[in-house]
Amino acid sequence: PEPFSGGPGVPELILQLLQLEPEEEQVRARILGCLQEPTKGRPDQPAPFGLLCRMADQTFISIVDWARRCMVFKELEVADQMTLLQNCWSELLVFDHVYRQIQHGKDASILLVTGQEVELSTVAAQAGSMLHSLVLRTQELVLQLHALQLDRQEFVCLKFLILFSLDVKFLNNHGLVKDAQEKANAALLDYTLCHYPHCGDKFQQLLLCLVEVRALSMQAKEYLYHKHLGNEMPRNNLLIEMLQAKQT
């Protein structure tokens, strides 16, 4: 993994975000610990899909924990915090997965948050067509961001932009959120211009990738809803709860 690299030309906001970034090893250990706990009322070994659902739930819990430590977000009242997370939960999950694949750096397999590798040939053979298509489309974005040389500094800044991507009219504290949006955009622009001067439109290209993250997250939600309708989702699933929550 890349070290937390500061140095000249790294805006203060990005430096702070790098400090807040959880260690992948710690997240992995916590989630593995949770998955090894027996499920209440269902002592049998859960099916692979059930495990994936619990893994996604636990990943989202880590994301909520990150958001709660983020500047500006932690100053907001809980109502605004919920509105922001209800807007972007699936995008944050998709982007987290995408960045893990960029670090993984292998075209033929995907790396799960637990550290397990799954061959794409296995996905093709064992996952249904909806999940397979979602995985392939995600891999295209991974390649695109890899070609753009997305680095850790840009990743943390984009993640922060996703968290605050909602129109402020839906929030109580307009001022604080608008200020965060403007500062994060300015930080990303300054950083890309300073560190990638040969690639003048990197800032715009990164923002365009967020449009694809949004589209992928919509597709992922359609997949979850399909599984929910087929009674295939575990009970008390956090993602299904997020899916069913009233949107702004």
Binding site: I61, M82, L85, L238, E241
Partner: peptide, 23 residues
């Protein structure tokens, strides 16, 4: 059943509870 009043996701609300310190 997993939603509180006004369609609020109860688990998320619990995770954001001020009484729960972030890790």
């Amino acid at each position: 059943p997993c939603q509180g009043a006004e369609g609020r996701p109860a688990i998320l609300y619990a995770l954001l509870s001020p009484s729960l310190e972030p890790h």
